[in-house]
Design a binder for these strands. Sequence first.
RNA 1: CCGGAGGUAGUUCAGUUGGUAGAACGGGGGACUGUAAAUCCCUAUGUCGGUGGUUCAAGUCCGCCCCUCCGGACCA
Length: 384
Amino acid sequence: MTLSTQERFDLITNNLEEIIGADELKMMLESGKEINHYVGFEISGKLHIGQAVMIMQKVKDLMDAGIKVHIFLADWHSYLNDKFAGDLVLIKEVADGYFKEIFKAAILMLGGDPEKLNFITASEYYSSHPDFWLTFLEVSKNTTLSRIERSISIMGREEGAAKDFGSLAYPPMQAADIFAMNIQIAQGGIDQRKIHVIMRDTADKIKTNAPMFDGKRVKPVAIHTKLLPSLAKPAIWPIPEDMDKRELLNKGKMSKSDPNSAMFMMDDPQVIRKKIMKGFCMEKEIGYNPILEWMDMIVFARETGGITIERPDEHGGNISFADYADLQTKFENGDVHPIDVKNYLADYLINLFAPARAYFEEPSKKAMLERVEEILEIISKKKK
RNA sequence: CCGGAGGUAGUUCAGUUGGUAGAACGGGGGACUGUAAAUCCCUAUGUCGGUGGUUCAAGUCCGCCCCUCCGGACCA
């Protein structure tokens, strides 16, 4: 089964929030040469649903499109961002074992081949490629402090919050990662946009590890997936007429640090159900409705043939939807109730995650999971 | 390095002349809705930055230390 260039392009770009450099991508696909992709992750104890589904589904699409995919384990970046209380030894331990397995589990549940995932650990890459640091300096030299500062909100910090100088090294590191590893497609959530733009802007100026493809200088392409909104009630409700819904969704993106707004791939089924049930969902309201957004971004993105919600006759019996627009119409009319949708979504996620949970039933993997829980326990005590 | 202002609940802060630590928001639980939200009840918060001292008694007074913010100084 060989795909046409157009089919490959469509696989890579479907369901994206945006692509920067579509022309470069087409050109590279035309060449038929191997294309390297990467997506970076800070090391954490859990994979949240945005990473597990939105990011990894795109990795699976890329895999299907014949792109060489890389998962970049950003251990030093995690240290800069105070993950695991800034304990590099613990970060490294988790990165080397458990964290790789959790990505294999994620790609497996999405129907991909774990063998096709290539892992690169930041610290190891840096020590074997010392010229990375010259690239890092070149990126730094070719951008400005104010752009770095503006790009830094991706680290999940509030603006104005105390930041150390090391955190400023983060964006140029991330840009330099892409050049040093000879990446043609850099993937991230739309929150990574500012850093990727810095990367693209400096791409022409880099001398060491200049981005080359097929003998030519080509700016790496940035692809950005959508962010799942928080299920909590928005800060402002009702929403004023003149407010940009997209801005609001962005503001309400899930935060890993707030356990109530985030859902994790390895959450117990009953926890998943509870989190969905707690979600803000106004009856007949389609203007701002995070539950419906999840249906769109998760369910309809995958179920292109439509879905059927099963429900007892007393609540109207089973009801089918051809696509998301159909769901919106019927929801707005009141043909389908929030609980119907929530039940469906909860079941859907529980089933979707089931293979990943099963993957960790295997004794050696279970031991890793328990060890990570132990580490997280140590960290929370350490913080106190 | 000097000066100023700070450090109290998850967050923003209040805390009288020293006398058992508070509010709001957020969190948790319940009522009401076929969900959630809104509304109404109920509820838990904590090494008061650390340490030594004065005192019957210290968040509060004193000494030392740590950290944050602002300004100044230094700039061969």
